Simulated scan of single mutants.
Amino acid sequence: MATTPSLSFSLPQRVLHWLTAGLVFFNLLFPDGMNAWNRSMKQTGAASAEQVASANIHAYAGIAILVLVAVRLLLRQVQGVPAAPSGEPPMFKLVAKVSEWTLYLLLIAMPVTGAAAYYFGMEGAGDLHADVLKAVLWVVVGLHVLGALAHQFYWKTNVLWRMTVG
């Protein structure tokens, strides 16, 4: 049961948000270790110790993202979240809600499909992970960042403040 929404996110919610963001950007920007492992496995059926270690770093970051998102969703249920700014147009409130839950869904689907490919050899899951979900995640993350910046500099709301300094 969520409590009454506060004016800002709690410190644990903010820390989890930024840890998740850091790991997401790490895995989006530096997938080379997993890519090298994948190429080697497809070409030769084996990978070097260095390739396995690099792929493991990518996989462990994905698992950490999944755990952090689960904790974030639990905290969201327990602590609630701040209400949307009152001056925000209804259409933008809807877009924010849809993109927020799309982002959560992607942050669950990405590690699950990645793990299915890496640990269980499900090639279709790997293709979905690397070719489709990754592109959608880039778009949704971009919209998320643009939305936060629009709130800060166009509407001059406290949305960005609530997730940074509280």
Rank of each mutant, 00 (worst) to 15 (best):
M1K: 09
A2P: 13
T3C: 04
L7N: 12
L11W: 11
L16E: 00
H17N: 00
W18K: 12
A21M: 10
L23V: 02
V24P: 01
V24N: 00
L28T: 02
P31H: 07
W37Y: 15
W37K: 06
N38H: 13
R39K: 15
R39L: 12
M41C: 03
K42E: 10
K42C: 00
G45H: 04
A47F: 06
S48Y: 02
A49V: 03
E50P: 02
A53I: 02
A55Q: 06
A55Y: 03
H58N: 07
A64G: 11
R72L: 05
R72E: 05
R72Y: 04
L73H: 12
L74S: 12
L75E: 07
R76K: 15
Q79F: 03
V81G: 05
V81T: 15
G87F: 07
G87V: 06
G87N: 14
E88R: 14
P89F: 00
M91E: 10
M91I: 11
F92A: 13
K93H: 09
W101F: 12
T102N: 06
L105H: 07
P111F: 06
V112N: 07
G114F: 07
A115S: 14
A116K: 08
A116Y: 05
F120Y: 15
G121Y: 01
M122T: 10
G124E: 10
G124C: 01
G124I: 04
A125I: 03
A125C: 11
D127P: 01
V132W: 14
K134T: 10
L137C: 08
V139Y: 05
V139S: 10
V139L: 14
H144E: 05
V145K: 13
V145C: 09
L146P: 07
A148L: 04
L149D: 12
L149W: 08
A150N: 11
Q152V: 02
F153L: 12
F153R: 12
Y154I: 13
W155K: 04
W155A: 12
K156T: 04
N158A: 01
V159T: 15
L160K: 13
T164P: 00
G166D: 09
G166C: 07
